[in-house]
């Protein structure tokens, strides 16, 4: 089956919401979708229960660049790292050993 060959069929999207009375978008979680438009619909269903007046951002997790919260720790390179070191962001065929 094709899906076994490539692990990331439906990539991960992070979801950010700003409520009606909110001042800024807040990260609420993630979901899987085939494309950004589907991700938006799913985010509306899953994280807002189709509440009106809520602003939704969906961002492919692979596009997020983040700093380390522990900047003062000398053992971490300061900033520019990927936020989640997910194996899902690497399209690795299933039969490659030790991956």
């Amino acid at each position: 089956m094709a899906e076994d060959q490539v692990r990331s069929g439906w990539p991960l999207y992070e979801v950010f919401l700003r409520g009606k009375r909110g001042l800024n978008h807040v990260h609420v979680g993630s979901l899987h979708a085939a494309d950004p438009q589907m991700a938006l619909r799913h985010a509306r269903d899953l994280y807002t229960r189709r509440n009106e007046g809520v602003s939704i951002w969906v961002v492919a997790a692979a596009d997020i660049t983040a700093s380390s919260p522990d900047e003062k720790d000398p053992f971490f390179a300061p900033s520019g790292d990927k936020v989640y070191r997910h194996p899902t962001f690497y399209r690795i065929p299933a039969d490659v050993p030790h991956m």
């Binding site: 589907m38 619909r41 799913h42 269903d45």
Partner: peptide, 11 residues
């Protein structure tokens, strides 16, 4: 076919 679709369908 996917969990996200369960939410949409139930809606």
């Amino acid at each position: 076919p996917e969990l996200e679709e369960e939410t949409a369908l139930a809606n």
